[in-house]
Simulated assay, not measured.
Amino acid sequence: MRGRSRGRSFGACSRTSTARLSRRSRFLRFAALRASVVGRAWLALERNLHVVRLVEAALSRRRLRVDAARVVRRTVLGIYATVLAKEWEDAWALTRALVWRLQQDVDGGAFAAIAIPPKEVVSPDAWRMLRALSTDGGIGSLDVERPGVVSGELFREARVRYLDLAPALRSHFAATGRSGYFGWDVHLDEEGHEVVAQALCPFVEAVLDERAATRARVGAATGARPTR
């Protein structure tokens, strides 16, 4: 029995090492591809994708609905209103219900929430541009901090670990003058991903450490062997 157990352990370790080497080799191949002429050309295309989108927009012949401007203002700016419209109250209520349901569905896992803010929360210039949409009124006063505050309250009530990435991205903006988002797009650029990764690492480690400690306590109380 002992020999078979050692054999199984050795086999498991061997498979784990092989899997790690395989992942490492795939990453090295990917890095080599990025460094190639084709890879550099593709990265250049990604960084200038707004040119492609501008051409597509110029060639597009889609008709906008007559109330498009009002709909955009209501849907884009409504979440920042200090007095929420009923549709946004319903949206937050649904979000709260989904969080509680997800928390119940997690069985022995680590449940945590992370909020990646939109560009206007990080960059004052982007916020001013967005605010310009509300010049005709109808929405009321706006607060750029409101979505983050409401999200934090929601997850604290549900006792869910929560990380708001706005402070990290704002610190990056204050230090560099760059928001971490593409200028023509709502997505994070390369710098933004680096900022997010640095902020996520200790948060994820803390969540996993807490899960391991909880399982160890449960195992000690029940006499069961803790699992990872």
Rank of each mutant, 00 (worst) to 15 (best):
G138F: 07
L169I: 04
G11F: 10
A81H: 08
A199S: 04
F10P: 00
R4W: 13
E46V: 12
L84P: 05
C201H: 08
I139M: 05
R211S: 04
G108A: 09
L169K: 10
E46P: 00
V207D: 00
C13T: 11
A221Y: 01
E46G: 03
E87W: 10
R29C: 08
R20I: 11
Y80C: 01
F10R: 13
A41I: 06
V52I: 12
A44D: 07
V218E: 15
G137N: 06
A216M: 12
W92D: 00
A12H: 11
L77E: 03
T227Y: 10
D105E: 15
A197Y: 08
V83I: 09
R156D: 08
P226S: 01
V51A: 08
V160E: 01
A199G: 00
T214G: 13
P226N: 02
Y162T: 00
R217C: 03
R73C: 03
A57H: 06
E46Q: 14
Y181R: 03
V55N: 03
E205N: 06
F182R: 10
E89S: 11
D164I: 07
G108I: 08
R8K: 12
P118H: 14
W100Y: 15
D67L: 02
F182A: 02
A19T: 11
A97P: 03
Y80L: 03
V121F: 13
A158C: 01
F30V: 03
S60G: 11
G177A: 02
P202S: 01
V144H: 04
S17M: 14
D164V: 08
L64D: 06
R73Q: 05
V99Y: 13
R65F: 05
E205W: 06
A115T: 13
R4M: 08
G192A: 01
L43R: 15
R34K: 15
W127N: 00
G180D: 02
A213E: 10
V150A: 07
A224M: 08
P117T: 07
A175Q: 14
P226R: 04
V144Q: 05
R225I: 09
R161D: 07
R15H: 12
S123P: 04
S141E: 14
A224S: 11
G78Q: 05
V207T: 03
I139W: 06
R228F: 12
P147Q: 03
W100S: 14
P117Q: 11
G223A: 07
W42T: 09
D209L: 11
A93P: 00
R70K: 10
A41Q: 13
V218L: 14
L21M: 14
V144I: 09
R228S: 10
S171V: 07
A174N: 08
